[in-house]
Design a protein around this nucleic acid. Structure first.
Lengths: 96, 96
DNA sequence: GGCATACATTGACAAACATCAATGTATGCG
DNA sequence: CGCATACATTGATGTTTGTCAATGTATGCC
């Protein structure tokens, strides 16, 4: 694995390697219509709205979630390809 | 995903979510006999011996690598089950 | 025993990070 | 226009993290 490869993989992993963000991803994926707005998420994770927005931005920047603004609300959806991709990159050669 | 589940998954991900440690894992896995000692690893990653030992300890604590002391050398091997496990936990439901 | 080798641990420090309060921006409604 | 709602951004703060120099520990060899 080259240095740039390691850096780009680490960047995505870093976004996900945080308990709150894992829960956010999980909550978004499990939510009705597979999308959720910030107001759906602050109460379940028990953190302030700015903090949740901050975490969501990190997940969007990493390509784990995507954001769509509809009226007053910002809807977040999972980008399954990203998780699938890092999942495959992490699978050890012996498996499969 | 519950809070404890998120925390334990995040702990393993955190160990791997670092470029140097990803390269170390990759180097160990690709090395002859699928094991490597610290002296095999410092030069490829270009960091000091204490720093490499430090990263290896984090990977061992997370269950990603295992360590075996043989004489003067400490040999590190991959624990494939750990990577397989987090790989599966990260696979989105839509995949498969 | 004495010395070299292989590695771990400690201490220190700058950089990155998670969090919140306060404030800013934009949308919708009357 | 004026106000409330939903969310983002900024600034500040305590904590974690990656790194190295210095030192400690243990093994092997003479």
């Amino acid at each position: 694995m080259t240095v740039p490869e390691a850096e780009s993989l680490a960047a995505v992993l870093k976004a996900v390697a945080e308990p709150t963000r894992l829960r956010l991803v999980s909550l978004v994926a499990a939510h009705a219509n597979a999308e959720a707005c910030v107001c759906d998420l602050t109460e379940p994770v028990g953190l302030s709205q700015p903090t949740v927005s901050h975490h969501l931005k990190i997940l969007v920047d990493a390509g784990v979630l995507e954001r769509e603004q509809r009226g007053k609300w910002a809807y977040y959806r999972l980008v399954p390809e990203t998780l699938t991709s890092i999942s495959q990159l992490l699978t050890p050669p012996t498996a499969t």
